[in-house]
């Protein structure tokens, strides 16, 4: 789950011989003109001065896109940095969920019978439907990312609306499932009650179930909010015209949320269900 090597190379390395480009882009920033010319003057007579800075800076100013932040030289560098950052963030998320998966695995190995029995009390119809909903939403998101790359703003907005709606459907179904489980006394705590040979460890199963699906649902909620905001922006503004990186990264996040569920579903609902 680490960043692919393709995004990890340095964009700036490739421009070693490109001094002119770096200087030209730099001059598009907030440098006082006077000092810049002084640099050029002091440079005369330096044997290995790479290139003379261009006197005409208008070209550099016009080519810099409006979303380019001052610390970056060009849009490609900004895009690479953002993408690498997103993959690293997802790596931290993997480790975050990893702690819970480790706890779940350890206790399932300790108490296989209790966990199998408890697993049979989960509501597989809800879980199964939700898996389908989330996988479909991820597919729609993939199309939205593609549409953003092709600069089709209306389609991006529509597809994002659909993705967000499917995310909402997931949350509603999950909510109904939680409500039903509470009514069946499957929420750990005082009212917890289960017909099982080892109720204490069955309760532990449900504790882990609520925790893991709860934190996952929190991620889904954040995703739905973000996707809704993005859909609005794509619909109303030109924010993503010629600038599809944010949509791309949102897509990565949404696929991550999806993939966590793809691991959660079999671990919680399917393991030893008919054993």
């Amino acid at each position: 789950m680490l960043a692919p090597t393709a995004t990890l190379g340095s964009a700036r390395d490739s421009r070693v011989g490109d001094g002119a480009l770096a200087v030209a882009n730099l001059s598009a920033g907030a440098k006082p003109l006077g000092s810049f010319q002084r640099v050029a003057e002091t440079r005369t007579g330096v044997a290995c001065a790479p290139t003379d800075p261009p006197n005409d800076m208008s070209s550099a100013t016009t080519t810099a896109p409006s979303h380019l932040e001052h610390q970056f030289d060009d849009a490609q560098q900004q895009r690479d940095a953002a993408t690498t950052g997103m993959w690293l963030f997802l790596a931290t998320e993997v480790l975050f969920f990893g702690g819970m998966f480790l706890g779940y695995t350890a206790y399932r190995i300790y108490y296989p019978r209790a966990f199998a029995e408890a697993s049979r009390h989960t509501l597989i119809a809800f879980g199964g439907t939700n898996t389908a909903v989330l996988v479909i939403s991820s597919t729609v998101m993939a199309f939205a990312v593609r549409a953003a790359r092709e600069n089709r703003q209306r389609i991006v907005a529509t597809l994002l609306w659909i993705t967000a709606s499917l995310g909402m459907v997931f949350l509603v179904i999950k909510g109904c499932e939680y409500a039903k489980e509470i009514s069946e006394h499957l929420l750990p705590g005082r009212s917890f009650h289960i017909e099982a040979s080892d109720p204490r460890h069955a309760e532990m199963f449900f504790y882990l179930y609520w925790l893991m699906t709860g934190i996952h649902a929190l991620h889904v909620t954040i995703g739905v909010v973000l996707i809704t905001i993005f859909a609005f922006r794509a619909w109303i503004t030109d924010a993503f015209r010629n600038h599809d990186t944010p949509v791309d990264l949102l897509g990565l996040y949404w696929h991550f949320v999806d993939i966590v569920w793809v691991f959660l579903f079999p671990l919680i609902y399917l393991v030893n269900r008919h054993g």
Partner: peptide, 21 residues
């Protein structure tokens, strides 16, 4: 801490000056 670490990794990968191998 996580945000700082993430920032430093991306900076080291992507923000090096020309020739800084």
């Amino acid at each position: 801490s996580i945000a700082t670490g993430l920032n430093f990794i991306v900076t080291t990968h992507k923000m090096r000056a020309p020739g800084m191998t």
